[in-house]
Amino acid sequence: MGTLSLNQRAALLSVLMLVVGLLIWEAAIPAQKAAEELTEYERLTGAGSAKAGVPPPSQVFAKAWEQLSNPFYDAGPNDKGIGIQIGYSIYRVLTGYLLAALIAIPFGFLIGMSQVAYKAFNPFIQVLRPISPLAWMPLALFIIGDSEASAIFVIFICSIWPMLINTAFGVAGVREDWVNVARTHELGPIKTAFTVILPAAAPTILTGMRISIGIAWLVIVAAEMLVGGTGIGYYVWNEWNNLDLTSVVFSILMIGVVGMLLDAMFGLLQRRVTYAE
């Protein structure tokens, strides 16, 4: 054991915890009796018919195998593969998120450059930011009139604030010395923005973008439960209505995995722009 590295030991411990956890879960679920083991009385009263219950991990794995081996099938509005559902959710998240980035980053840049603008906009940002994104939903549905676009709007409105605030904060905090370097080299405002301020503020901006994508992924599930039709959020709710708890547990896991991947992507980007002083 002494020869294992820190990471190896941690990985070993993780696997151990997973196995123990799954075993406890599996053991905690009472097995359902097979049809031939039922007594006459049980058969007559219907006590033996399949009851909905929390599925054991073995069933979830079987479900996952089944779903993941054919993720893109489409058998009508209420029966689509998990890949299609996640695809819809990612499409909505990315559309809303990119629109938010397109506005938040340039706007945050301008606010960060001017102390007056920073102070003038701050009260509005502080009031709008804590509003639960779903609270916008009725208004969005009424004004936009389209549920698909409303879901995207909700993503837009929830991911704009961390990006806006972090961009403004990052730009405002760029060291005076670096700006002076740009000034003594006669760089124009546009050139200064791109060659000095943007790289200097990039780690803070990326932090905001990473927070935003995390929030957007949290919100899309709830938004799709409301809006319905497609997407992973709708899928979870639909399977709950079908009392298919195995699918519910499976989709919960998938939400976690996709969220982790999105975060890891931004983590990678963040590492690329981070610099040591």
Binding site: D177, N180, V181, T184, H185, V196, V273, Y275
Partner: peptide, 28 residues
């Protein structure tokens, strides 16, 4: 106003930390 005709070496070096040494000089 500032000008390229007057170069400055600041006490705290004022190098751009996200650029390599060579790129910092190339920047100027």
């Amino acid at each position: 106003g500032p000008s390229l005709d007057r170069g400055v070496v600041f006490q705290n070096y004022s190098l751009l930390p996200w650029l390599t040494t060579l790129k910092n000089v190339m920047f100027g």
